[in-house]
Simulated assay, not measured.
Amino acid sequence: MLDVILNYKTLLENLHIYIEESKFKKEHIINELGVSRATFYNKLKKRSFSIPEMVKLSTLLFPEDAKAFEIKQALERSRKDSAAGRVLKHESVMSDARKRISR
């Protein structure tokens, strides 16, 4: 658990660098967070972003990691569904796919 905390600390300490190096302009990041410009810079200076804001920032700044996490979560849900017997037959899935494509 200590490694998670230390990694988070490092993330907060280097957040300004990640923002500078990102492909996004600061205005875009500020708009995505839904905060004022002054609030953004204040939070950046004080390292006081909320957890939902950090999730949003991480998704913007590290899109590959966010996509990998999303895929990992989807696979875990699939495994749980399969283990619980919540599965569809191949024929049913293919039939539904064909219907969607033909629309």
Rank of each mutant, 00 (worst) to 15 (best):
S82P: 01
L75T: 03
S82W: 05
R77T: 10
K99A: 06
R98M: 01
Q73I: 06
V93S: 00
A97S: 06
D96N: 13
A74D: 05
A97P: 00
S82E: 07
K89F: 11
K72S: 09
A83H: 07
V93Q: 00
L88T: 11
R86Q: 11
A97D: 05
M94V: 14
S95D: 13
S92I: 14
R98W: 00
E70W: 03
K80R: 10
H90P: 12
R79G: 04
K72W: 03
M94L: 14
G85N: 02
M94R: 11
V87G: 01
R98Y: 00
Q73E: 07
V93I: 15
S95N: 13
R86H: 14
E91I: 14
S92K: 15
S78E: 09
R86I: 15
S82H: 04
V87S: 08
K99E: 13
V93L: 01
R77W: 06
A83E: 13
S92H: 14
E70R: 06
L75G: 03
I71S: 03
S92M: 13
E76Y: 02
H90S: 14
I71K: 05
D96C: 06
D81P: 01
A84K: 11
K89S: 12
Q73P: 00
R79P: 00
E76W: 01
D81E: 05
G85C: 06
A97C: 08
K80N: 05
G85P: 01
A97R: 13
E76G: 02
A83L: 10
R77G: 01
E70G: 04
A83N: 08
A97L: 11
S78K: 07
A83K: 08
I71W: 00
K72P: 01
K72Q: 08
E70N: 10
H90E: 15
D81R: 12
R98P: 00
R77D: 10
L75F: 09
S82D: 02
A97N: 05
K99Y: 09
L88V: 11
D81G: 02
K80L: 04
K89G: 11
E76T: 06
L75R: 04
A83F: 03
A74E: 06
R77I: 12
A83T: 07
V87A: 06
S78Y: 07
A74G: 03
S78N: 10
V93G: 00
S95G: 07
L88H: 15
R79E: 06
Q73K: 11
E70V: 02
D96R: 13
D81A: 12
S78G: 07
L75I: 05
D96A: 14
A74W: 02
G85S: 03
S92C: 09
A84F: 09
S78D: 08
S78Q: 08
A97V: 10
I71P: 00
M94W: 07
A84E: 09
A84L: 12
I71F: 01
R98V: 00
E70A: 12
A84G: 05
L88R: 15
Q73T: 08
D96P: 00
E76Q: 09
K99H: 04
S82M: 07
S82V: 07
A74Q: 12
A83Q: 10
A97T: 09
S78R: 10
K80T: 04
K80F: 02
